[in-house]
Design a protein around this nucleic acid. Structure first.
Lengths: 197, 197
DNA sequence: CGTGGAGTTGAATACGATCAACACCGGTGG
DNA sequence: CCACCGGTGTTGATCGTATTCAACTCCACG
């Protein structure tokens, strides 16, 4: 199971087998059943999760207890409350398995220690942070300035495999619309496709 | 004018006058008239701006050319496209003066060099990044999960002085609602206040 | 099989956006 | 100094769109 993270790291940075063995010592392989909660709001988040099989999501609850999805994490994705992890503040959201999932938990200091094992790995840490930053900012902007339909089109464009795999009600929650609205949006989109054909 | 940034830095980190002189060499004092654009979408952002007097804002335009405000920056705030600054990617938004404004521009390498002038200043850089992260994430969550009224209440709570100072149409744009809706929200809020009295 | 959840569809509703009118200044120029 | 003007904020009426509620189908799974 660690082999998947190893492969991921090899694709991102130059790393030897000996270094990978060092890295593996920091990692803990775990499994979660569908529905299992890995992090709760207001807990201190002490790990980042790297998914090797299955899918996790992070979400908040509004005052009517409706979930709103912040992020999906299928294979080869990281998910964590980065701020809670870095500052020991209470977590802002839940993390939950939406499929039976295998994942690797790494401790808070993992990314700090990585460069001492693999010189130059700061770049990876920096890239991960930038990717996260970019994606949050992009979502903020699209929530502010784009319609539900445009957000959906962007979603299937950006994450085509997720769009097939994730239940539509969860995609709707991620997009900030109701499942019914998403269903209707999909209908009008497919009718446009027919027109063009 | 640099004195205001100096005071700001003194409040954040231990810094001597000699160090401040070194820092000042990296800074450029500038002024912008109301309406002046400091950064355009798709330009490479090469500075961060620290406002010493007046107010800047960042915003995007949607496909109908309506502005949507990402951030306000009054005195003692930083504003920049951090990702463009760090990666030389094209900027995602505009930065514009909404009042006659005096500000200090610092180059992309400013935050990298700061620790070599003031040992321990990494903490400040890290804190600034965390603050930005926190605020973007908070806005994302509130757009996903809170009503316009709740977002407004949170805004006046979080930034009471901004709420008095910024035109309401801009606050509405920041909150993702129309100026008319904000006006009506304010009306119902004040009537609630009367009830309680 | 049968049950429950997911997705779709329709109808009614509610809510925010839009359009329009107006009051209220703050600044400018006569 | 006052008249005028443009922009801002408020309010009302209308409109459009997403939400809500409900019914139904279709699988997947036990």
């Amino acid at each position: 199971m660690f082999e998947i993270l190893a492969e991921y790291l090899r694709s991102k940075i130059e790393v030897s087998d000996a270094q990978l063995q060092e890295i593996e010592k920091l990692c803990t392989s775990k499994v979660a059943k569908r529905g299992e909660i890995l992090l709760k709001v207001n807990e201190i988040c002490d790990s980042a999760f790297f998914v090797t099989k299955g899918c996790l999501r992070s979400f908040v609850l509004d005052k009517k207890n409706k979930p709103h999805i912040i992020q999906f994490a299928p294979e080869n994705w990281w998910i964590t409350d980065r701020i809670s992890l870095m500052t020991r503040e209470p977590a802002m959201f839940y993390i939950e398995a939406i499929e039976d999932t295998e994942y690797i938990a790494v401790p808070e200091h993992f990314f700090d220690e990585l460069p001492s094992i693999v010189p130059g790995a700061e770049r990876l840490t920096r890239e991960l942070l930038l990717d996260l930053f970019r994606s949050i900012r992009k979502r903020l902007i699209s929530l502010l300035s784009a319609t539900g339909e445009d957000r959906y089109l962007d979603f299937i464009q950006s994450y085509p495999s997720l769009a097939l795999r994730i239940p539509q009600k969860m995609i709707a929650s991620y997009l900030g619309i109701t499942p019914e609205s998403l269903s209707r949006i999909r209908k009008t989109i497919s009718s446009h496709a027919v027109e063009r054909h």
